[in-house]
Nucleic acid binder design. Structure first.
Lengths: 105, 105
DNA sequence: TTCATATATGAATATATAAGCATATATCGA
DNA sequence: TCGATATATGCTTATATATTCATATATGAA
């Protein structure tokens, strides 16, 4: 049986809470931020990301999976190479705004 | 001596990266989201928050300290009671947008 | 089919962090 | 000063998570 939480009328339901927290969690890690920031410019392959940011291939791949699960990025295949690009405009706008908000403060 | 990272021209500097990640980290925890969501309405004392959200007083106090350090909340004192309210409009707008974006999807 | 390259994945580990308990501190009134 | 109430803090523990290594999988070319 599911545990019952009787929430305050102004409290959020569990599903919304989960979605919101996951979205912000995606943007809370420096490595993921750097990856998404790179994707502002243009699509990049996994290796390009790893080289540009000086990260291991497996690290990049793990983080891309995380972002893919949240539909924040997508990819297209060309031979053995996967080109990743961002998929969620709303989230990317938040990221851009917050970077600007933070960099000249 | 500080370690030198030579970053890609499109990469973010360390200070910005830290600020951005901290900001989103604040919004990545369900408890902190619920607290901030409550503060949309009006200021609340620590105990009011704890009761409304069915959380321990120490839990609320710990999280408020976190939010206070990032200047996302402020408080005013009235006797022994501290009334907390939000302080950062930009962050609260992001939160509100993302909640709306997530709740009817 | 075999090789080379690009990417993904599983397991292990180190670190970060949220929550809880117990207790300290602060303010006010008597 | 003492008691009551509100909040903060230190410590501990359980859990989550980022990274790494080693290896698996997938694609295309020879």
């Amino acid at each position: 049986m599911e545990e019952q939480h009787s929430r305050h009328p102004y409290d959020l339901d569990e599903e919304t809470l989960f979605l919101v927290s996951q979205t912000f969690k995606a943007l809370s890690d420096p490595t993921r931020i750097r990856i998404l920031n790179l994707l502002f410019q243009r699509e990049h392959s996994v290796n390009e990301i790893a080289e540009s940011l000086d990260l291991r291939q497996s690290t990049v791949s793990h983080q891309l999976r995380f972002l893919k699960n949240l539909r924040l990025v997508k990819y297209r295949r060309e031979g053995t190479t996967l080109y990743y690009s961002y998929e969620d405009e709303h989230v990317m706008n938040m990221l851009k705004q917050t970077i600007e908000h933070s960099s000249h403060s």
